[in-house]
Nucleic acid binder design. Structure first.
Lengths: 191, 191
DNA sequence: ATAATATCTTAACTTAAGTGAACGTTTTTA
DNA sequence: TAAAAACGTTCACTTAAGTTAAGATATTAT
């Protein structure tokens, strides 16, 4: 299971056994059942989450309605905004499937970064890369219609459409569940 | 002018005179006239841009139409996706106003980071912070209607509405220029 | 196993965005 | 400075998303 992590890390930096052991000794591997809420609106946290296996999502409750804005699956992770800003979180994080997670807190990261500069370099590369990707995704979203967004998703993350409930997908695409149903029917008709 | 940069940096790390001089000697300060294109679709680049004064935008040309997806103003910057991915750029970058920029290339950054670890730490903090912010912005976009997005922008970046042409604002909001006109008229009526 | 709840789809109607065109205004550029 | 191009607004029409409601499944909890 830990190999999943080390395989991932090896794409960015190579770790010695000592470094691997230091990471393992942090006791950051956790598993969580489907439906578990990791973070609630209004809470503050210092934890970051990285998915080894399974799927988590972020969602808001706006005027009583759940709005799912992101999914994180294998080898994806997030540091909630409130970790950086010290404000209470505006969103919830919960598990869509039984999930194996790495949960790290910011003090822990400071310590590891101090001991192994290599690790800090990796985090820098990773977050710069993710920022660039996130901006591209946002651009794509802005320049597409809901239908195009759905077709894009079908191409780029077909697994999501299978593993995620439709009404959560809908808000992820920026529309209502009814509109997603209709839009899919429309696409089938066209074929 | 350089003070703008050092004031900004001082929010994250404190630099010695030696470090400041090292930065100045890199000769990274440039000015560009309104309308200058910094990067074209199809080009590869190793340059990152940081705005000290003025405004730049990223835009795509999709089926003959310009789609503006982002604006960067004072103390904001971007590293084009192609710097990280080594693919040709899918978008253009150009100056909306006469602009004073910091232009840095990735080799330069590697060198500075090697010499001053402090600098690498700052870049890591900055990009993690920006990633978290970008995700929040994307969430906000997904969960809002075009009208709400416009009202949001009016609150959060009122300067943009003044300094940027309407048709560029429109695609930034994910709609057509005609729709932005209409939407503004609608808002005025309501008052 | 059954009741309760959540989810998905369909439909009719409303609202707002997309489209194509016209027109006046501003900005460029030759 | 005159002509050309770009820009912003309005309008009528089309298309698609939002809304409300109902019914059919599927899932969860007791």
């Amino acid at each position: 299971m830990q190999d999943l992590l080390f395989d991932f890390i090896s794409k960015y930096v190579s770790l010695t056994e000592e470094e691997k052991n230091a990471i393992i000794s942090l006791d950051i591997f956790h598993s969580a059942k489907k439906g578990t809420t990791l973070l609630k609106e209004g809470q503050k946290t210092k934890y970051s989450y990285f998915v080894l296996k399974g799927c988590i999502r972020t969602y808001y409750i706006i005027e009583g309605e759940e709005k799912t804005t992101a999914f994180y699956t294998e080898m994806e992770g997030l540091t909630p905004y409130c970790v950086k800003s010290d404000n209470p979180s505006e969103y919830y994080i919960s598990c869509i499937e039984d999930t194996i997670l790495i949960v790290s807190n910011s003090d822990m990261e400071v310590e590891i970064n101090g001991r192994f500069p290599k690790f800090e370099t990796m985090c820098k590369i990773l977050s710069e890369e993710l920022l660039a990707k996130e901006r591209i995704d946002f651009d794509k979203f802005k320049t597409s219609s809901p239908e195009q967004r759905y077709l894009n998703l079908l191409q780029s993350r077909p697994d999501l459409i299978q593993r995620v409930p439709q009404h959560q997908l809908a808000s992820y695409l920026g529309i209502k569940p009814q509109s997603l149903s209709r839009l899919r029917a429309r696409i089938l008709e066209k074929k």
